[in-house]
Design a protein around this nucleic acid. Structure first.
Lengths: 204, 204
DNA sequence: ATCCTTATTGGACGTTCGTACAACAAGTGC
DNA sequence: GCACTTGTTGTACGAACGTCCAATAAGGAT
């Protein structure tokens, strides 16, 4: 009979990915405080030593997990926009409301995201990733707003406001899922988007 | 000559408070991962063992720090509202924009706040504090909105949107202070508040 | 079948963690 | 000046931490 192997070799890229996904799950479940090399390794079903084989340190694994998660979000947003067609307003609304539908509105993903936020101040490499992610998001938003005819002078402030709204709704969606559901968050975002992108009222 | 004392006794309440404040500073500087008993004790200028004398464990100290920080925010908001007088719209605007002025717009306070957010999912007692804090904030907001004549049917959604906006702006203020300044955040919040509280547009 | 590459394991290392506790000493009442 | 309370220190302990590395073995190549 064939002796059952004690472990199975993986393609380096596949193993790398499985470690990243395990790291994301641990971050979502236990937060940054519980994301130790051993915990992540157990979650991935491998030995602790293997983490060192694929990443120079646990910090690098966490940073890679951030980058991977960010790419997932970007891809989901791009897909939602592509699905919305060519009409600028439809694309803008799709871009914003996609944050409150699968696969982005996943509590696990949001919890992972919050764990990253908590690292930005203390870890410069995480801060760099954040600036890149946030800048990309706001840049796309400004472009979409311009396509919708928003005056150039209002692009920055409006994009910041919408980004803040989305992030804030993410927060509550994740921290108090019993208080706020994804579909309600989507409705709130849709309404707020319409109000924030209307012609400026006469100053009073 | 008088021998200089090796240490100074403090009133229990004063020492307790100094430990809480030291904990907040550590959370702001290093995040939750760096908030160990020893680090906090050094920050407070006492020995590590003293923490155990005042709190049953480091988790309790962190929870107490959350409660204390929340009370500080509440007090600052109440003060800003009181200063605004009796006119409902002025009170509402003061309540919202106070989040972007001293003492709330302090990067240290915001960093501490983010550290708490990262704990909500993993620690039930922190989740309870969060629900209380968030509920209180939104409750006050709904009350102010009602005073401003907003229809009852829109109170909840509008309060959630404004809270999300404030939280999202806090986030960016703290994570990318070089990208977003407090006064710009205040201006964005003021404008968004006006737009979000206007009469609903005709659908279409 | 044998060799070779290298993914993978498991244990060792020094450090830091949270907690407990006996000893010490500061301040108060007498 | 003495006793007493208790805030405070320092240390000790086991557990968990990140990292390193020699030994092992899986799977493809020949």
């Amino acid at each position: 009979m064939t002796p059952s192997p004690a472990f199975r070799r993986s393609e380096p890229d596949a193993r790398r990915l499985s470690l990243i996904e395990a790291c994301a799950r641990v971050l979502a479940r236990e937060g940054i405080a519980g994301a130790s090399v051993r915990t992540i390794a157990v979650e991935a079903g491998v030995s602790a030593g293997l983490v060192g084989h694929y990443f120079p340190g646990v910090d690098a694994l966490i940073a890679a997990t951030y980058a991977h998660t960010g790419a997932r979000v970007d891809a989901a947003l791009a897909a939602a926009m592509a699905k919305a067609g060519d009409e600028p307003h439809a694309r803008l609304e799709a871009f914003v409301t996609a944050s409150f539908a699968a696969p982005i509105a996943d509590p696990e993903l949001l919890a992972t995201w919050i764990a990253f936020w908590s690292l930005v101040r203390a870890r410069p490499e995480i801060a760099a990733l954040h600036d890149e992610q946030y800048g990309g998001f706001r840049g796309q938003l400004e472009h979409l707003l311009a396509d919708c005819g928003l005056p150039a002078a209002q692009l920055r402030a409006t994009a910041i406001a919408i980004t803040a709204l989305v992030d804030g709704l993410w927060l509550e969606l994740c921290l108090s899922p019993h208080e706020l559901a994804a579909d309600e968050a989507a409705a709130i975002a849709r309404d707020a988007l319409a109000r924030l992108t209307w012609k400026a009222p006469a100053a009073g």
